[in-house]
Design a protein around this nucleic acid. Sequence first.
DNA 1: GTCTATAAAACGATAGAC
DNA 2: GTCTATCGTTTTATAGAC
Lengths: 206, 206
Amino acid sequence: MTTINKRDRLIESAALLFHHNGLNATSLADIAKHADIPIGNVYYYFKTKEELAMAAVAKRKEQFSAGYALLEEHIDDPRLRLIESVYYFEKVRDEYTKYGCPIGKIIVDADVEKDHVVQMAAQVFAEFIAWAERQFRQLGHSTDARRYATFIMAGVQGAAIMAKATRNPEVISNEIQRLVSWIENLPNRKIQLGKVAMKDMSTEAA
Amino acid sequence: MTTINKRDRLIESAALLFHHNGLNATSLADIAKHADIPIGNVYYYFKTKEELAMAAVAKRKEQFSAGYALLEEHIDDPRLRLIESVYYFEKVRDEYTKYGCPIGKIIVDADVEKDHVVQMAAQVFAEFIAWAERQFRQLGHSTDARRYATFIMAGVQGAAIMAKATRNPEVISNEIQRLVSWIENLPNRKIQLGKVAMKDMSTEAA
DNA sequence: GTCTATAAAACGATAGAC
DNA sequence: GTCTATCGTTTTATAGAC
């Protein structure tokens, strides 16, 4: 099929421009120009702008899902899986400082109750929380699992905003450090059930 | 002066609509209609949309500055001042869950390097960090003061995003709880200089 | 100072030739 | 499948009467 190429090019250009300039500020003309496709032809692949935006966010969602699958496949310890998932954001640190998080940007932008694109972006977060929650459960933190999972993504999102506001990528590195230290020092309740002396959510590394 | 009323009405309507619907999605016609002022008359008070947006953000900035002044005036202990500043977000919890943080929204939306409105929004954050930094310094945490101050605002911003994404206001309450517990358990290094046994950034309350 | 009418540009989307 | 030309709407912004 020859059509797949142009369709994918549109999705990739859309995802990039939405990330860099925002959903509202990016016009279909911008996307078409970036993908080197005439404006009129865009509507052959996507009937509306919303449909293209949905495809772009769906692609991000699949990329993250593939990431979780890779972590499950290569790392046995759920604690190390969580740590590795947090370290991912060190790789995109400078990009997030300049443009913010591509998913967070969409969540912030519009109404979660009305906008379909925002709902799909929210699902990306929901999927991470569900995944991280399972890891915390495996470490024996069933009652706090959901709250802990949310803490991680909230930490990353907050750091991304403050990094952008202060134009300082180290804000993200600091937050990653804090989260990793916290996860490292979390007790494994599945094994040592008697000891309750914990020192969690620590700022400082050991 | 009779002109001050309409000008202020425009700024208030703009601030509200920018918060609820975003900067890009809010048209001058929307603002004029909300303030009950004909569109053409808007341009008598503000030459461009950017000028009106600047005035709206400047007003938010002044409100926050007034808040810091009030804290300094009524609370002696810098630790309690910090705690009180965090508890503020409990009051706006439901609003933030629906619409996000009015300042964070602007930061996320556009380019910090080019957009003047975003730069002013960034100054609101910078002002909080500078204020919180001074409080941490007074507690003897000079070297970590700036990092700690950034942690607070990052925590709030991240919680606001996750609360909106999951439509769950408790995410913000949880984060406030975490931050307050952390501040409460921070050692006062100005007084007890010898003891280094600290247990900071704790998730759980005592 | 206030308001109507309208210009000028950008945008999402469509029609229809190829 | 591809592309040009263009419609209809919305948006920022201005001109000019009152």
